[in-house]
Write a protein that binds this DNA or RNA. Structure first.
Lengths: 122, 122
DNA sequence: TATGGTACTAACAAATTTGTAAGTTATGGG
DNA sequence: CCCATAACTTACAAATTTGTTAGTACCATA
């Protein structure tokens, strides 16, 4: 997002953990505040910047841009720019990102179950 | 971890997202720097505080405490205190946490695959 | 010539998470 | 009485993420 400081313990720890653990690596990849939401919106096909912005309640253009840029770097979304005026850009999931979908389904089910479970604890 | 500020846009956004999306809810739950590592160490049974600390390279006692406390609140680990001196405390996964294990397996595989894929991009 | 729409970027501020360093508690053994 | 030990706390500082506000470029159209 902003650039990170080289030589911080923080960065060092993160690298050490992510470097060893594929699970943490995978989870870090989708760890930003809005990333999962963005990816979910793209499940059914391409969307342009403004469509994403309008579908995601509360996100600012800055945040949308930042998270899309990261997702792009990570190879999870593909960005296509059309040479038009006014500009048009669209985003879609990459192949490897779509392979996450079934896993998300399961995680999501688990989440729903956990949520109910916690409610009953009150 | 530290208490969060009521009425911040930040908190508000998080609540709104997590409130609606089971997937984000599930991912947030394991989102701290050290949480997955801790949970993984507990896969094979109970461990005491000092054992966790020693098995997790680079973690400080403060961080270990914080993350364990959250995991406990979230119902993912169970904490047991023995009335001894010096104190003894151990931690174990709860039932609902163990239901995540197969999903982690898949995510982890995906992570490994993605990592290879990215290497080949260079 | 002024306007409008789209997809951004820049500068700054606030909130949140993570790390550092130094205590604290209680008690059994010497 | 003093010390060691395990499992924490506390106060503070640094790093990182998120949010706010105000711009930018482009050119077809009015």
């Amino acid at each position: 997002m902003g650039k990170r400081k080289e030589n911080s313990t923080n960065l060092h720890n993160e690298k050490a953990i992510v470097g060893r653990c594929d699970l943490t690596y995978a989870v870090c990849m989708i760890g930003g505040r809005w990333k999962l939401l963005i990816l979910c919106k793209l499940e059914n096909g391409k969307l342009r910047f403004s469509e994403l912005r309008d579908k995601i309640n509360g996100i600012t253009e800055r945040m949308l841009t930042l998270q899309l840029r990261e997702l792009e770097k990570e190879g999870l979304v593909k960005r296509t720019v059309y040479a038009e005026v006014p500009p048009r850009v669209d985003y879609e999931l990459t192949k490897i990102a779509t392979e996450l979908l079934p896993i998300w389904g399961q995680l999501s089910n688990w989440g729903a179950k956990h949520r109910k479970f916690m409610k009953n604890q009150l």
